[in-house]
Design a protein around this nucleic acid. Structure first.
Length: 271
DNA sequence: ACCCCTTTGAAGTTA
DNA sequence: TAACTTCAAAGGGGT
């Protein structure tokens, strides 16, 4: 039973129907939450990463889920075993490890007694911390307890986009290449590197992100990005606009008018 | 302790 | 429908 679950989850991950339109630029992609939407344009066929996996990995025969009826939404527990089994070996894969190590895919919520039976990292308490000990709820009004109940609902995080996946994979490398530790500076470098990537290289991450969104949709069918709106404490809108939309985003989606924070001296290879 | 910074992209909201 | 806003990750810095 456990093995079956692991295999079916693995097959699901390995054999999502690839998108059509190979060779074009991967963006923009239509929203996947739109059920009527077509597969994204420009996303290549299964990336070399997955070809490598399907050809060399000693797994059961592939199952084409496009031909297979899915009778219920994929459950987190369906994939928990997958994570615990694969998280080690997948680290040796070429190109990237993010697909298999990304929190949204590290679905380890529930193999009882298994050392890897950790909560799904995409589902976190709203505060991101351990919950406090309960106290006397009878002292609260109904509205208060309802609000608290709502607040205690675990937060399902957004799936990572292509750039986030790229950052996750490359951050350690950039940090190793320079002495910087500050994430803001690292992210500036990663942003430049992202633009320096070829379309094919970027396409790999767009494809991963697309799969991630698909998996997220199956795991959490009713979830909407709106669910997390307002959960972060943010500074006042006025101040925020000042810093982010003081200038319009350019074609690259950045804010050219804004004075870029100086990046300390770095070797040319880093930038 | 907790928000800000900084990046891009997806998705939600507003006009 | 275009423009705008929010949130995903990360971790040092600032309050």
């Amino acid at each position: 039973m456990y093995k079956e679950t692991v295999y079916s989850a693995f097959n699901l991950l390995m054999h999502y129907p690839p998108a059509s339109g190979a060779g074009q630029h991967p963006q923009p992609q239509p929203p996947l939450h739109n059920k009527a939407s077509q597969p994204p344009h420009g996303v290549p066929q299964l990336s070399p990463l997955y070809e490598h996996l399907s050809s060399s990995h000693s797994t059961p025969a592939p199952v084409d889920i496009s031909q297979k009826q899915v009778h219920r939404p994929l459950q987190t527990s369906d994939l928990s075993g997958f994570y615990s089994l694969t998280s080690g070996s997948m680290g040796q894969l070429p190109h990237t490890v993010s697909w298999f190590t990304h929190p949204s895919l590290m679905l380890g919520s529930g193999v009882p007694g298994h050392p890897a039976a950790i909560p799904h990292p995409a589902i976190v308490p709203p505060s991101g911390k351990q919950e406090l000990q309960p106290y006397d709820h009878s002292l609260k009004t109904q509205a208060e307890s309802k609000a608290e109940k709502e607040a205690k609902k675990p937060t399902i995080k957004k799936p990572l986009n292509a750039f986030m996946l790229y950052m996750k994979e490359m951050r350690a490398k950039v940090i190793a290449e320079c002495t910087l530790k500050e994430s803001a500076a690292i992210n500036q470098i990663l942003g430049r590197r992202w633009h320096a990537l070829s379309r094919e290289e970027q396409a790999k991450y767009y494809e991963l992100a697309r799969k991630e969104r698909q998996l997220h949709m199956q795991l959490y069918p009713g979830w909407s990005a709106r669910d997390n709106y307002g959960k972060k404490k943010r500074r006042s809108r006025e101040k925020h606009q000042e810093s982010t939309t003081g200038g319009k985003r350019n074609a690259f989606g950045t804010y050219p008018e804004k004075a870029a924070a100086p990046v300390p001296f770095l070797p040319m290879t880093v930038l």
